[in-house]
Design a protein around this nucleic acid. Structure first.
Length: 835
DNA sequence: ATCTCCCGCCATATG
DNA sequence: CATATGGCGGGAGAT
């Protein structure tokens, strides 16, 4: 009977521990709140026990922390036992170990309770599985589940058989950061969006044709699986442990976490997670049982993560109903500020790979620097990933105009004909790059104002961080505005130095907007750009720009679309009207299709354009200056910038809080960058290549040094028109464009389409371009009464023709211009219930 | 019925 | 070979 008693007691104990640790939330969602807690029995033995134990627990814990010695902790445990025995009425054991009391989450709590969150580094605490299993009265198998997840977070690491080291949460920040980074590199955002897109299409489009296409493209572009992410700091001394491939649960756990860290409302539904995790290994195989298994495992992981208070269970309610999901409640993860220090190492390392990779430390730093045992094999897929990332970085960094150091690998998901459209868009940009063009929208003041509003909003957490007018630092090296010889200058598509600050910002309009414009205004010059369309979620990369500004500190950050905030009163309305919104969206999409068809009869696979995610693409610019002086000043500015604009440089405050309701509009604040989320079907690469070549032809190439071409590369890559590995050579003679990541489709890259700068009429430039100031430079801009509503309407209004309320307007000079860089994105209903 | 997810068989890895 | 690990999926409790 004693045997029976003990587990019971422990269960009770851990309940208490649990409540104590999560005072604010319900004690663990998965194993629902113990019935006895709430029901009206104030004086049951149980409640009594609980009170006492909860009183005792803190003391116990602190004692535990004080004395790191394991024996002392066991002693404490013993004390606990005594306490319990004392208080536990013998009669109160009818509650058999119900299922809940054996839940992994609970068990995990018990487990965690044995070790301090932050063990003193001096004294390592070890974990002996035998002890644990015995003391916790669980089967070994369960402990493995827990430990594996903990391992994935580097809270423990294995020493040897039966033996683990307890690190506690010391490594957590780094781990999370590393995971986030890998997650970004792994294009999880895109994958999530793809999946949602697929779901969405499935809803509307029961016939499977286009879906197939989508699925295929998704499949082919799927990331191959990556390996366990390790931390340089956390040595796995038992190297033998590492070479193992048996890391599924660990890896799965890491990926799961990555999904949270990478997605913007940090909510991940089990379904999506499972799909992504499955998708990585075996693309199609929508095996039901496999899915179920994945879900099971995810629950396991989620339970442990919940115990760690890193996530909590919620429900997202979409059209289809309630879906289980989890929300990240762990620490906000800073963007990697110091790449070198917190480098993630994606490994199951094998040295042989690295020789061709100059800066292998970037994503595959060897975990085991000196020790001999390095016979681990790295998956070839990893190698590919590594290389592609390396290439990305190299190229981006080599572009003098691009201070961005983010991994890019974007995918385009376009039909060939769509690509053609995009080519024009890029041609446009290219033209911009070549000619220093700038355009000041009439309504820039409004924009400014909105931008300011956005910044205020984002600066809430650190009030003094609201960017004040830029310090009168380095006057822009006085190049005539926007006039830089393309041949050698840093490219500045649009430069609008503020008269006082000399800080310039530029904006590139994303194709989706171009699309919108052209669609709504058929008379317009540009071909429709069906490559992206509105739908879905706000891309989450508020942090990316943060990172950029933080890392680079350059003043010439790209200003994102100044958000046109919906009037606050409007939001609830929209929220409640999501379904109609959806209809709107749909009909809109359909009409767009029609329009496009009208314009391009041969356009095919428009289906893919239906649900693309929009994103403005912003490219940070540097000034048209070179030379050490400029560099220096830039650096200085960088420093100043980060000092004086904590809003920008603080990864935390800069993050735009997103609530579910906000999902309905895409508010792109001034310092928000959104990535392109386009998938490129393999056969489109040729087109991209062609494009690259043709662009080159038009550049008076001075080889790879040509900043313009570098910038072009950078841009193309970011825009996703060329895959990560592709570098558009600056040398026009080179007809072969190497395609590294997306395989063998370069063959027919003969220069067909010629998009030359001259060809892209400057008239079109206005379309894709918009410039804005940061509001901070115009603090006194009068607030013009706005009619956001009008804009909203015009956006949602079904485009019937040239004048059907498009968001285009015509300038006095006859050029078109987009009104308010606000992109309203019809969003599917998404509610999060935190039960 | 659906959501959760415990249990424990059994294949593999380890020592 | 004995054990330690951990993949995996049936099927049962919770809702």
């Amino acid at each position: 009977r004693n045997v029976l008693k003990t587990p019971l007691k422990q269960a009770a104990t851990s309940q208490v521990v649990l409540t104590e640790r999560q005072p604010e939330c319900q004690p663990l969602t998965t194993p629902p709140k113990p019935k006895e807690t709430s029901p009206a029995e104030p004086w049951t033995p149980t409640s009594n026990l609980k009170m006492l134990i909860s009183a005792a627990s803190p003391e116990i814990r602190s004692r535990e922390q004080r004395k790191q010695l394991s024996n002392s902790s066991t002693e404490v445990l013993q004390a606990k036992h005594c306490l319990q025995e004392h208080l536990l009425g013998d009669e109160y054991e009818k509650s058999q170990p119900s299922r809940k009391e054996k839940s992994l989450g609970l068990l995990c709590h018990k487990f965690l309770a044995r070790y301090p969150d932050y063990p003193s580094p001096a004294q390592k605490s070890y974990i002996c599985l035998d002890e644990v299993t015995e003391e916790l009265h669980v089967e070994r198998r369960r402990i493995y589940d827990i430990v594996n997840v903990l391992e994935s977070l580097h809270m423990v690491s294995r020493l040897a058989r039966n033996r683990y080291v307890w690190h506690g949460r010391h490594n957590l920040p780094q781990t999370l950061q590393a995971l986030k980074k890998v997650g970004e590199e792994n294009k999880y955002i895109q994958q999530i969006q793809m999946i949602k897109k697929r779901e969405y299409e499935h809803e509307f489009d029961p016939d499977g044709e286009r879906n197939e296409e989508t699925a295929n493209s998704l499949g082919s572009s799927e990331q191959s699986e990556m390996s366990f992410v390790e931390l340089p700091g956390v040595e796995f001394r038992a190297a033998s442990v590492n070479g193992r491939k048996y890391k599924s649960l660990r890896v799965m756990s890491q990926k799961f976490v990555m999904l949270f860290l990478v997605s913007t409302p940090q909510i991940v539904s089990l379904e999506v997670a499972a799909k992504i995790l499955i998708g990585e290994d075996q693309l199609e195989d929508l095996d039901k049982s496999k899915f179920k298994t994945k879900i099971r495992r995810l629950y396991d992981i989620a339970n442990v993560l919940s115990s760690l208070k890193l996530i909590k269970k919620v429900h997202v309610t979409e059209e289809r109903g309630r879906k289980p999901a989890f929300k990240w409640t762990g620490p906000e993860v800073l963007p990697n500020i110091q790449d070198t220090k917190l480098e993630a190492t994606s490994t199951t390392c094998s040295p042989p790979v690295s020789e061709s990779i100059p800066s292998k430390e970037h994503c595959s730093k060897n975990l085991f620097p000196s020790k001999g045992k390095q016979n681990f094999t790295r998956h070839s897929s990893l190698i590919k990933l590594v290389k592609s990332i390396e290439n990305d970085r190299r190229k981006i960094q080599s572009a003098p105009t691009s201070p961005i150091k983010m991994s890019t690998s974007r995918y385009l998901f376009l039909s060939l004909s769509q690509i053609q459209s995009c080519i024009k868009y890029v041609g446009l940009l290219w033209a911009i790059l070549s000619k220093q063009f700038f355009y000041i929208p009439e309504n820039w003041q409004e924009i400014t104002y909105q931008s300011e509003e956005m910044q205020m909003k984002c600066a809430l957490s650190s009030p003094e961080a609201v960017p004040k007018p830029e310090p009168p630092q380095q006057p822009t090296p006085s190049q005539p505005l926007g006039v830089c010889p393309a041949s050698h200058s840093s490219v500045s598509p649009v430069i609008l130095p503020h008269p006082h600050s000399g800080v310039s910002y530029a904006i590139y309009l994303h194709p989706s907007q171009a699309h919108t414009v052209t669609t709504y205004s058929p008379g317009f010059m540009l071909q429709p750009l069906p490559c992206a369309n509105v739908t879905g979620i706000k891309s989450n990369n508020s942090k990316v720009l943060n990172k950029i500004t933080t890392e680079e500190g350059d003043n010439q950050i790209a200003m994102a679309e100044p958000a046109k905030p919906l009037a606050a009163e409007e939001r609830p309305e929209m929220k409640s009207e999501t379904s109609s919104q959806r209809c709107l969206k749909r009909s809109q999409a359909l009409q767009e299709n029609n329009l496009i068809k009208r314009h391009r009869g041969d356009e095919e696979s428009l289906g893919t354009s239906l649900t693309f995610f929009p994103s403005g693409y912003l490219i940070p610019l540097t000034h048209c200056t070179h030379g050490t002086k400029a560099d220096c000043s830039n650096k200085e500015r960088a420093g100043m910038c980060s000092l004086q604009h904590p809003t920008y440089s603080s990864p935390i405050t800069g993050v735009i809080p997103m609530t579910a309701s906000e999902l309905k509009t895409v508010n792109i604040p001034a310092f928000h960058i959104t990535p392109l989320n386009i998938m490129l079907s393999p056969n489109s690469i040729a087109a991209a290549s062609v494009l690259g070549n043709s662009c080159l032809t038009s550049s008076n190439a001075s080889s790879a040094q040509n900043p313009s071409s570098s910038a072009l590369n950078f841009m193309l890559q970011h825009i996703g028109l060329i895959p990560a590995g592709v570098q558009v050579p600056a040398n026009p003679v080179l007809q072969h464009v190497p395609v590294s990541s997306q395989a063998e489709s370069t063959s027919h890259s003969s220069g067909i389409t010629n998009v030359q700068e001259g060809k892209v009429s400057t008239k079109t430039l206005h379309l894709g371009l918009k410039v804005t100031f940061s509001s901070s430079f115009q603090p006194s801009v009068p607030k013009e009464p706005q009619e956001p509503q009008a804009v909203t309407e015009s956006f949602f209004r079904t485009p019937g023709g040239p004048n059907s309320g498009s968001s285009l307007s015509t300038n006095s000079d006859g050029t078109k211009r987009i009104s308010q860089g606000t992109l309203y994105i019809p969003q599917r209903k998404l509610e999060v219930l935190e039960d």
